[in-house]
Simulated assay, not measured.
Amino acid sequence: MKLFCSAIAGLLAIACVTPAFADVIVTPRFTGYFDNSNQRQSGIDTAGSLPSDTALADLNAQLQSVFGPTASVSYANSDSGSRASQVFFPMLGASVSFSLDPERRTQITATGMYGRGHADIKNIGTATQHTSIQGQIADDLFVTRGTGRGKFGRIDAELTLQHRLDETFSLMAGLRYERLRENVSITTQTTGSSNAINLINALGGNGIVSYGLLNDTAVGSYKTTSAIYSARVGAAAYIPLGSTQRIYVNGLAHINYAPANTIVLTQVFQSSGLPQVVNSRIGSETTIGPDISVGYIHQLGTKASIDIRYRGLFYFPVSGARSFDDPRVNHGLSIGVSFTL
């Protein structure tokens, strides 16, 4: 990450010292991106309906205060899964470009984009509770179903260096930073067996036995921020369509690093009115993949042009807990109008 930030700072320093011969090109841009990051299933160490370590320690302390130091309760996950819609981000931003040489063969471009989106989220998780009191064992199974809605904010920042070999072919390299913020409100419904309660009642001298299922509802929310740091290298090809129009294709290979991310959900159950903390963790991840754009440029005169492009970015995991066949995919349409100052 330090190397990435140093490289960004170096390129920004270059960008701040604009050569006298360089034409500055400013391009306001609108992009509509689809992001499937909240649909990926593999590699998530989800706590489901489990209490946090602190809450579990408090629960054991209460149980031991009544039944002695050997009493204990523990949890384990069985399975979990989620379903969510893709997030669509309408993004606004701009690019600033200028040449680094008098022949205008080498160009540097800085781009910044910001957008917001939302998605509906559903998940289901199962957990097993193991209770031991005075040599007696009670196992319970709980199923938790959650429905929620997430609000997402996204920042994309890129620095790209392009060197033109001729009128139809260029080499490209660059750095990219993505930040995704999530703010999710969720309601969960938990259904489970009551064997532990029956064991406590029996050992405590209370003869009440429950043969039904326990049901409870909780309302909660969580906020989290994730990031991706990328380095890219590739080429661009141009096909002239007369004197004022061109079709172009960019193809780059990128390697990406996403730091580990912890999600902390705080929720309140209706039955007790007490808060519960649920932890989920997504480990760090290294990915590779193509970054492909296909576009059209129309020159509107000597000082202005419009471009329309479709871009797809693919992130295939090569390290981390996620599987290679569970990639992150971003794709969408971008429109920009360039002005030469």
Rank of each mutant, 00 (worst) to 15 (best):
A71C: 11
N215I: 03
S72I: 02
G32T: 06
T340K: 15
P240T: 12
S97M: 05
I8D: 02
N195D: 09
R104G: 08
T46F: 15
S97N: 01
A236M: 15
S72L: 08
I121L: 14
F314K: 06
I228P: 00
E285C: 03
Q39N: 12
R311I: 04
E103L: 12
T244G: 01
G295V: 03
A218I: 02
G220A: 07
I239G: 00
A260M: 06
L241K: 08
N206A: 08
A94F: 15
A13N: 06
T262A: 15
N77K: 06
T128F: 14
V294R: 02
N195V: 02
H331G: 03
Q62G: 14
N36S: 03
P317I: 07
Q270N: 12
A76C: 05
T160D: 13
V143F: 02
H130D: 12
S272K: 05
L313I: 10
S170K: 06
L56W: 00
V219E: 12
N60G: 08
D307A: 11
H118Q: 09
S6E: 12
T131N: 11
T266W: 01
S319P: 00
T168F: 10
A22S: 11
D53E: 13
H254V: 02
I200V: 15
D45P: 00
G10W: 08
F169E: 07
E103K: 11
I155F: 13
R149P: 00
S221A: 15
L92Y: 15
E182D: 09
